[in-house]
């Protein structure tokens, strides 16, 4: 419900022609439809390969019944959203493609995502202090924070404080990693 400053502007008439419009423009909802399709297909495959053990009283549903209902809901909404995205009028799509609140800073996004993936992979081998510092560095730098050296220093300080607070004081076992060998 957040008011978008540009939503009242009519789309640029030159962009109105469907010919100049990339096929993907204004069809971001296809990503949503794909996500829902994956959810539905995973449930269907899970149901078909399910190895039902034990007795479920006398209910007709059994362990898979509810899963079928959810799969139907996911696939149904997927089709509905995809159909709407495909049939969208060109003018509406052009307007959304030109909407500045939809622009995406891809390098920054990938930087933050890379930091998260790196943290998930490296936490056990490298240990908390180094991987948390790396995560903080990656996200703050991706968000445009400078200088880079200070980002790393602040990240290291935060990792240390959390290690002392939760590791030493509250007994949470955080992996020590390579620094543990020293």
């Amino acid at each position: 419900m957040t008011p978008r400053p540009d939503s009242d502007h009519p789309a640029d008439p030159r962009a109105d022609t469907a010919a100049n419009l990339p096929v993907t423009a204004g069809r971001g909802d296809l990503v949503v439809a794909a996500l829902l399709a994956v959810v539905g297909v995973v449930l269907v495959v899970g149901n078909l390969t399910m190895d039902v053990v034990g007795e479920d009283g006398t209910s007709v549903l059994g362990p898979a019944g509810f899963g079928w209902l959810v799969a139907a809901l996911a696939l149904g909404t997927s089709v509905a959203i995809a159909a709407r995205a495909v049939r969208r009028p060109a003018a509406e799509r052009a307007q959304e493609a030109a909407d500045p609140t939809r622009e995406m800073n891809v390098p920054a996004f990938l930087g933050a995502l890379g930091g998260l993936v790196g943290f998930a992979v490296l936490l056990q081998p490298l240990g908390w202090l180094l991987s948390a510092t790396g995560l903080f560095f990656a996200v703050s730098s991706a968000l445009g924070s400078r200088p880079l050296l200070r980002n790393a220093a602040v990240g290291f300080a935060m990792a240390c404080v959390l290690q002392l607070l939760f590791g030493a004081a509250l007994g949470l076992a955080l992996p020590s990693g390579v620094l543990g060998w020293l």
């Binding site: 933050a112 930091g115 998260l116 948390a132 995560l135 903080f136 560095f137 990656a138 996200v139 703050s140 730098s141 968000l143 445009g144 924070s145 980002n151 602040v154 990240g155 935060m158 990792a159 959390l162």
Partner: peptide
């Protein structure tokens, strides 16, 4: 930057 990096950690 620091706020969101802190949230992530």
């Amino acid at each position: 930057g620091y706020l969101y990096a802190g949230i992530t950690v």
